[in-house]
């Protein structure tokens, strides 16, 4: 994967207007954002897997993946989970509010690597957000790929993001969608599906391990376990891409906050070959 070149004026935020707010879960929302004027993005329209530095005025700036690429009028979608001051302010933004955005930054998913091969998407929690663009792109060009499996793990049924999209993908018939939850949460839940970790879904997925490309995003422990489980299934680690979350700050490889060993995640990542990043993730950090 090539190192991402900085976008035009990478440190200058662009004003975006919140056009829509969709509640995903109790603490997570998807914002549709559109430029308020002529965009300076040009050819730098985001690709699946890239991220932007989103700022809520007076609250702070945080790296957030694109969960849907440029649509009508350059509108993009970001899915934000409220875990701190800036993300809480962003998740609370409503149509008409303004936010600031820098980007797109980083590498995207290498979809070309999956051409003619089976596609296995494994998402944990909000890790589905940066992978949604992968699924959308694959399904928009469905004949280019073999079987498509989307395996999703969530904390509880109430914590499942993109429920409508998952239903839509599942209804197509040319993509296998499997969902599991770590726990029911509410014992009276009517959740009819699997309970357990997302790696358990790999046993029931139909793909050719010798000709499969896997895209994985979620908490690091989940990604390490998933790469191991894919290996048990026979998938070569060279055919696995992961998206790594680090404390991206400048977005252009200057500040070093996101450094992971020799890798500046904001430039070389966040999508990285599993073979390159896994040994780095196994280094114990303080």
């Amino acid at each position: 994967m090539a190192i991402a070149e900085p976008t035009v004026a990478p440190l200058v935020p662009q004003l975006l207007e919140v056009r829509a707010h969709r509640r995903e879960t109790a603490d997570t929302a998807t914002l549709t954002l559109a430029p308020t004027g002529p965009t300076a993005l040009g050819d730098a329209a985001p690709r699946p897997g890239q991220f932007a530095m989103l700022a809520a005025f007076g609250a702070g700036e945080v790296p957030i993946s694109y969960s849907a690429m440029a649509g009508h009028g350059g509108a993009v979608e970001h899915t934000v989970r409220s875990v701190g001051a800036a993300t809480a302010a962003l998740a609370a933004a409503r149509p008409g509010d303004l936010v600031a955005s820098r980007g797109p930054f980083g590498t995207g998913w290498d979809l070309d690597a999956a051409t003619g091969r089976d596609v296995v998407v494994v998402a944990g929690g909000i890790g589905l957000a940066p992978l949604r663009g992968v699924v959308d792109a694959v399904l928009a060009d469905r004949d280019r790929y073999g079987s498509v499996n989307v395996l999703v793990g969530a904390r509880t049924p109430d914590d499942l993001c993109f429920a409508e999209h998952l239903r839509g993908w599942s209804a197509r018939g040319d993509v296998e969608v499997a969902i599991t939850v770590d726990r029911l949460g509410d014992p009276a839940s009517r959740w009819p599906g699997a309970i357990g970790v997302v790696t358990g879904l790999l046993d029931g997925a139909c793909f050719d391990p010798d000709a499969a490309t896997a895209f994985v995003c979620g908490p690091e422990v989940m990604m390490r376990a998933t790469v191991r489980a894919l290996g048990v299934q026979g998938v070569d680690v060279a055919d696995v891409q992961v998206s790594v979350e680090r404390s991206m700050t400048c977005g252009v490889g200057h500040c070093g906050h996101c450094q992971l060993g020799p890798v500046l995640v904001c430039r070389e990542g966040p999508v990285l070959p599993a073979a390159r990043v896994l040994p780095l993730l196994e280094v114990r950090e303080r």
Binding site: R81, R155, V221
Partner: peptide, 10 residues
């Protein structure tokens, strides 16, 4: 048990 999706993951 780790509740991987429960804390801080953005």
């Amino acid at each position: 048990l780790l509740d991987l999706y429960g804390h801080g993951h953005r």
